[in-house]
Write a protein that binds this DNA or RNA. Sequence first.
DNA 1: ACCTGAACACCGTTCAAGT
DNA 2: ACCTGAACACCGTTCAAGT
Lengths: 239, 239
Amino acid sequence: MGFVSTTERRSPTDQAQQARRGRPPKGATQLSREAILNAAIEVIDTAGVASITMRSVARQLGVDAKSLYNHVDGKDHLLDVVAERVLAGMDIPEPTGATGDDLRAIAHAFRARTLQYPQAATLVLTRQLSSFAGLAPVEAVLFVLRAADFSPEEAVHLLRTFVATLIGSILREVNAGPTFGVSDAEGIARRRAVLEQSGLPTVSEAAVYLAQFDSEAEFDFTINLTIANVLARLPATKA
Amino acid sequence: MGFVSTTERRSPTDQAQQARRGRPPKGATQLSREAILNAAIEVIDTAGVASITMRSVARQLGVDAKSLYNHVDGKDHLLDVVAERVLAGMDIPEPTGATGDDLRAIAHAFRARTLQYPQAATLVLTRQLSSFAGLAPVEAVLFVLRAADFSPEEAVHLLRTFVATLIGSILREVNAGPTFGVSDAEGIARRRAVLEQSGLPTVSEAAVYLAQFDSEAEFDFTINLTIANVLARLPATKA
DNA sequence: ACCTGAACACCGTTCAAGT
DNA sequence: ACCTGAACACCGTTCAAGT
């Protein structure tokens, strides 16, 4: 059905594309983990995470799928590395000492980075990445909380709440795209009608608000609420 | 490599398993959407969501994979229906009028249901299910918030925060399993050592708390914090 | 050191042919 | 009405053979 013929999906450089065996002639684009990662992100970004396969990534590079195994440990590992790479690209804001502002800044930096490749967001938010890349934001949040005089133990609890809220919010934001149809008036109206006729009294009463979704505003609302919570628990020393 | 031979994975009833063509003889287990759903959930629960394929579900039923297409619209649709089914099985607690308690009860009911099939949890929490099943918990939360005199608009915002927190929490809980190694002392110690040597000052300071994860307690903490937030915003009429 | 051919055991899905 | 055979275009991955 709707698939792309193999022959017309060749590498960007358009050279050394003849099927060959053994080491490439000379200046052919050398395969590397770096190149593979970029190709994978490219595929995800243009065709969605579902269409990432060893073969599609290889095609992007004008190379055979099996060659990738010389540089990554398999598909699962590749996806892990992609997630790490995206997360590692996040730039952590400098703390200013104002607890609320600092947490807000981290939240927005995190969101900005994960939404930079919306198609990859689910990957980044869902995979359990135990590497260093995943720890940098954790360190940032903990630092701010410790600076606010929370005990390490409470800081960890608050961190977990903070992260859960962050992930839940962004995940929905990413998934809501398809369902909420961006924000065109017609889509909202249609959705509103469905909700109104759901037969659920409170849902239909609130249909007009449920039908629309301003992701930016919604994110701010949730994050601010969570931060207000944190501030309310500030130890006496700082409050 | 590690796969199960086709011939020894036969249906529970163990009858009418010979390859045949056309309508089954007489009392053979009739295929139905119901049966397919149960088989799918069974596969997910025993082998994980990754191993659900049209063929594995069919094998569970002692039937050809293509036969499933007479009852479901394809794999994606099947997964949607599974998610809906799981969510639909949630029993919504009766509201008592105490806002905080009622929200807490809904949160726990939601968690209990999604964790009933831990392997399916990601599916339920991640898929965008626009059906009726997804709306029942929404109605429940909105009802409680409206009963507390929040405006429909604010109720929707609070609902979204609530759900994001819920989903983020449970998702992590489900994913943390593999990483945190349940809670055996040795796994915790190893993880703690890694965190301590991370080179990130605040992370290593809090390593002992980061290394362990009591999911029940953590969930309660987060949910209580979120609910405290809601209560703090109660309109004057109720506060 | 790094690439590919051949090969294997899978996938989802369509469609016509069977009962 | 509902099932399967044949078929198609895919998958991930191993391993030996090539340069």
